[in-house]
Amino acid sequence: MVKEDIIFAGFGGQGVMLMGRLLAYAGMKEDRHVSWMPSYGPEMRGGTANCTVIVSDKEIPSPLTSKADIVVAMNLPSLLKFLDKVKPGGKLFINTSLIEEDVARDDIEVIEVNANDIALEVGEGRVANMVMLGALINKVGIVKMDTIKSSLSDVLSKRNHDLLEVNKQALDNGAKLV
């Protein structure tokens, strides 16, 4: 039985909800059980945002997780908040473009991705989330990269469909990092 619990965290506007939705959508397309649970509250752009995605071969009981297999921290407050949530032996993806601090745990694998820098190389600062997701998918699988790419047009709102190609480029460039 394969079940992966992933927490995506960052600040509002970084697209962490979108990363989670894209993974959940791709999981659904591959006929897996999926759930996507966002944090919700009064805070908006600039505040903290996170979502929990579960992709599993069987029915998902709780859509929340106490200990995640994978945590993605897109900024420092997210790292501080969710570092303890990584299961021993789990994986932590950190956005080193915005996080300079060392990770104070040696029982987990830390994967460093300079997501914002790579996004700027692609020519679109807003796709740092896709750089990170590309790295994640290439490192741990969960779903196929092709399914992620083919889900983009379903998940991205229509007004952003001019950015489909640059999102795919960001996924590829992120994948090359790991």
Partner: peptide, 10 residues
């Protein structure tokens, strides 16, 4: 409750 309302599932 808010969780069923806010969460996404297929």
């Amino acid at each position: 409750d808010g969780m069923i309302g806010q969460m996404m599932e297929p």
